[in-house]
Nucleic acid binder design. Sequence first.
DNA 1: TATGGGATTACCT
DNA 2: GGTAATCCCATAC
Length: 197
Amino acid sequence: MVISESFYLREDTLSIAKELLGKYLFTNIDGAITGGMIVETEAYMGVKDASCHTFNNRKSAKNATMYEQGGVAYMYICYGIHDMLNLVTGQMGKSHVVLIRAIEPTDGIEKMIERRGNFSLKKLSNGPGSLAKALGLNKSFDKESLNSERLWLEDRGLILEESNIKITPRIGINCPEPFLTAPWRFLISGNTFVSRK
DNA sequence: TATGGGATTACCT
DNA sequence: GGTAATCCCATAC
């Protein structure tokens, strides 16, 4: 079942980030369907979060998509090289997003290996830049609906026990406390396709 | 108009 | 574990 817009429009971004674990993410590019199960996410909490691109109400062409109503993709290019997929959540103007950091590949694995250049299954999509490349995501997906012909998420009825979810500080950010170590990263405990334990 | 930095990755020892 | 790759835009002169 495709996840509907109401899922993303809720106000509790941390719950959304946690509930995205075990959901499925797919792209269909020129008829090639690729994707898998989300195993790692991070929440970025808008204008008050010092590590968020919209901190202090910053607004620019680069981050404008973050202020859209929940249910669209926000693509960010990091280090000029790596595309990353975020899901915008909440009402218009809230600028909360969830970064998808890793998936467990399930569909179109051959195609993903082709895009990545013969990587082992484990390293196919175990990081935000890697998974974007494996799924063929790039800046053209910025502002794309999360229920479109070429990008969508599915709930396949998998229910995770609370004890199978691990919560840690976010990876790779550089900002003051309390945001630096805020427990806003969620991963499936023991899953081997996460970027880091 | 010039400069610096970033939600990373891959390849080296 | 150390580091180069690589580019848009925010910030500073």
